[in-house]
Design a protein around this nucleic acid. Structure first.
Lengths: 193, 193
DNA sequence: CTGTCTTTTCAGAAATAACTGAAATCACGG
DNA sequence: CCGTGATTTCAGTTATTTCTGAAAAGACAG
């Protein structure tokens, strides 16, 4: 199967970036191929397009399904499994963030909490322990924020993101409308955009 | 150098997570060690604490400096280089996000833009091209938002994050104060302010 | 059940990344 | 300069990950 220049380039790029994104080349390429494809593809289509082994495609698809980034589709009258990416890019982003959080952040949060509960902390570890607490609190703030954002409808989320820094006006304006735990300190200026 | 149980566990965890975070075990461990340390450490301190080779430590430190996550410090009267992590965790987070963006996102944004400019796109690629545009627009929205956030003082940023989803009240109340509403769809042009 | 088509598993090969020790380079006091 | 100690480089080794082909397992029509 001959890929157009456009598709070829896109797919190769995803393959190369794969290692930086924590997935392997084939997985990146499979995702890219499916993303650009107008119809669901079966494993053999992917083999033909990418020139990798059938078993490699099988494993790659399994991994992508594990990430919930690729869906299994059945085509009537065809026994083979077919695959597509999520059609909604925002949904894809949500999934990606949720999965990365699950793999890259949550285990550390758990570990930090465990370490804080450790009974046998020596006095020499007081500072270390405080730093662990500090890190846990930072991560909790971020994951809590993410939980909030994940709950929003896409439309609202987009609006918030587009607002960007302008939102800060609502938390530090003359009326300080919500009076929520803001900590003003020395050197704090009204850094309006 | 004997590490306390607390430090040992923390360091080993960072080593194990390293691969998920796109850094190798030693780099993760060096960062963890420095993060918990109350004073700057020299390379030999790190060798003693982690039990890896001197050259490995040298390469790890170089990488961490490349990420701007570790600083070189000079101790008066000591010829050896000493190292610390950034003392401000928020600064660390900013650096981390900025560096990951530079490595994991910006190259793709550039590539997507290039592909959109490609002159020889065949009609059969119309849909593929539209999907590329869609992805570019999503990434631009996110990086634009990040640019905004990165500009804020930490205090304001924290306040915004703590607000979380409650902020949406400002953009979708009865009056729809800012009239930013519609969801993005295929074929949509960017339209960021 | 049997035969055919499809997918998965898995042991070993190939490719990549991480790590080491030795040698080279660098920095600086004398 | 020279000598000493610190750091970096790098070729070779080890460890890890990715990929493949062959075999096993699964699914379904007849």
């Amino acid at each position: 199967m001959a890929l157009s220049h456009l598709r070829q380039e896109f797919i190769l790029h995803f393959g190369e970036m794969g290692s930086r994104w924590g997935i392997n080349r084939t997985v990146g390429q499979i995702y890219a191929l499916l993303y650009l494809s107008e119809r669901p593809l079966c494993a053999d289509d992917i083999v033909a397009a990418l020139g990798v082994s059938r078993s490699n495609v099988s494993m790659g698809l399994k991994e992508l399904q594990g990430w919930n980034l690729v869906l299994l589709r059945h085509i009537p009258g065809d026994r083979r499994d077919h695959f597509t990416t999520l059609d909604d890019l925002w949904q894809m982003l949500r999934t990606l963030v949720a999965e990365r959080r699950k793999r890259e952040i949550d285990p550390t949060l758990t570990k930090l909490r465990d370490l804080e509960l450790l009974a046998d902390t020596a006095p020499e570890d007081a500072v270390a322990r405080a730093r662990i607490t500090e890190m846990r609190e930072l991560i909790e703030l971020l994951t809590g924020w993410h939980d909030d954002m994940a709950r929003l409808e896409t439309e609202r989320l987009v609006a918030l993101l587009k607002m960007g820094a302008r939102l800060q006006k609502f938390i530090s304006g003359p009326a300080d409308v919500l009076s929520l735990g803001r900590v003003r300190q020395k050197g704090d200026t009204d850094g309006r955009a």
